[in-house]
Design a protein around this nucleic acid. Structure first.
Lengths: 229, 229
DNA sequence: ACCTGAACACCGTTCAAGT
DNA sequence: ACCTGAACACCGTTCAAGT
């Protein structure tokens, strides 16, 4: 797993040399355009003017490639510098929303951010959460459990909300899908599903980002009352 | 998509007739044993003494088959009848834990419980959550957002916690994986990762179920203070 | 209506061989 | 050290043909 660009035998840089970063970048482009099933080593190799075998010198296998691509995308959440002095709660909220928005741009990525973190940006995310949690009044022995809980919420709930868009093709399909699901709910027996049958308009009209922040704010409220009882 | 067993031309039941339920049941067994990649239409057909083509009469494709299998597994959370009269919070907590435990037994399933729900048991889960949420003092227009938030937490965070076990083979691997990840964290620069580098023992010793309930309790605390300010 | 199984159009991955 | 591309061992899915 080299971290530098290749060099031709004569010692000069090859303009078209492969590298992990170049491969991951091209993979992200294909994933955005064609989804996870559309990403193929043959196609990726063609885009990079090589054979499929060449990629395996830089990347262990497809699972690793997709994981690297997802971590790269997660890193987009950190482009803005962390705002200086705000409350821990506000910092956690801003961080969570930045992650949601980053993953929202690349729907295939959300379900590939794994826990516990081992890749650079996932590590960074948990560390930032932990540092913010440590700033609350919470006893130290609870920092790990609470920080990972928040981290799990961010990536897990983002994946739940965003993943359907990775299957449905375009953004326009979302409305059609929701309308169809709402119709399905309307046909259910109200005796069996009293809640769903009276909630179909909310389903049609809901906003994904609001869904994410609703649960997030409940979680942070709970953190707040636990830390400052 | 037939819901009944097949019948031979002479009108008698065939003992070996296929059905959606039989196929899903056999698929669950293979998924448990071999994981998602191990489930193959050829292998599944062989187990059921048919050819792969026969399965396509009962099931649209592999995605649908795995989704049906996951929903079936989710249904295990409802085997115990809902305890009669408890507080909404206690009911939600018990329900959430029942879902976690059900998915925990079939690690491949967690990441395939999709939102918004369209299959029977996922619908049932959201309806039960909604009914419990309606029992709190929360204004009606917030019921949908809060219920789905809780539902997303349950399935999304369960998937995050449980999914790694679907890749790692046995339960013994978990300790090895955590130890290896902890070693990785220890080698990080404390200047870059102040939180992670002092939290490695918590990582080694944590319990997955506690992780799940920690965030869940924060969320329910938040719900409680929001509903009864 | 339901099942059969060969065939199609792919995959991920490996590896001897090149430079 | 890095790249090439043919070859291996599979897949999911379709479909004409059977009962």
């Amino acid at each position: 797993m080299p971290r530098t660009r290749g060099r031709a035998p004569d010692g000069k840089w090859r303009a078209d040399a492969l590298s992990r970063e170049i491969i991951v970048g091209a993979a992200i482009a294909l994933l955005d355009e064609l989804g996870e099933r559309g990403l193929t080593f043959r196609l990726l190799a063609k885009q990079l003017n090589t054979g499929p075998g060449a990629l395996y010198w830089h990347v262990t296998n497809k699972d690793e490639l997709v994981a690297l691509a997802a971590d790269e995308v997660l890193g987009h959440a950190f482009t803005a510098p962390p705002p200086p002095e705000e409350s821990a709660g506000a910092g956690l909220r801003a961080l969570a929303i930045a992650v949601f928005d980053a993953l929202d741009q690349h729907p295939w990525a959300a379900s590939h951010v794994n826990a516990p973190p081992t890749l650079a940006n996932a590590l960074r995310l948990l560390d930032r959460i932990g540092t913010l949690v440590a700033r609350t009044g919470l006893p130290a022995e609870r920092h790990f459990a609470v920080s990972t809980a928040i981290s799990y919420y961010i990536t897990g709930v983002s994946a739940q909300i965003i993943a359907p868009r990775a299957t449905a093709v375009a953004a326009t399909d979302r409305d059609a899908f929701l309308a169809q699901t709402a119709e399905h709910w309307e046909k259910l027996d109200p005796a069996d599903y009293p809640f769903l049958t009276r909630t179909t308009t909310d389903l049609r009209d809901h906003d994904d980002r609001d869904q994410f922040t609703t649960g997030l704010d409940l979680l942070l409220d709970g953190l707040n009352t636990t830390a400052n009882p």
